[in-house]
Amino acid sequence: MNIFRLAGDMTHLISVLVLLLKIYATKSCSGISLKTQELYAIVFVTRYLDLFTDFISLYNTVMKLVFIGSSLAIVWCMRYHRVVRRSYDRELDTFRYWILLGVSFILALVLHEKFTLQEVFWAFSIYLEAVAILPQLVLLQRSGNVDNLAGQYVFFLGAYRAFYILNWIYRYLTEQRFTRWISCVSGLVQTALYADFFYYYFISWKNNAKLQLPA
């Protein structure tokens, strides 16, 4: 464990807690893409298949349970909570995410570390995570100015993967046999997708204006 990875995991945790706070405190999920949340639930379930077979550390197991639990709780809230579900922007959140699922799965069948069920699903979850934010970014652009909690959620989510890239560089430099090409390339793609959002987020923060994304 290095400081970059810890910072990444904490930032990721914050992004999920910010989202849960927004939904719980305001009883509203306006501006949040249910499709992105469902993709993230799939990412965590397919990545942590080793939850019960491999014990790495208490930290690792607890964080896996928190991520799976919180992502499923958010999806449940947005779908079935009688108050929250009314504020879901159903007509704006129309990204055809089956494409993302299909492409990620086909890519995982072709590119993986070992051709085992667990490894193929692990690679699938890595590729899917890289593109899971797309429905949310599209929703932010369609709903124009974002309310700040939705913007913060995306900001922390982007920052977490950027920290992980530093972690991979650090591990590559300090550990001889560390080669995680699937994670590194996918993580770079993921962070690049956030780049334009970061730019507009920074501009709005600098001008102390509401975040306006170009439609």
Binding site: R5, D50, T53, D54, S57, E113, E119, Y164
Partner: peptide, 10 residues
């Protein structure tokens, strides 16, 4: 305890 499949990251 390093995990069997080597994925020690979240």
């Amino acid at each position: 305890l390093s995990s069997i499949n080597g994925h020690d990251e979240l």
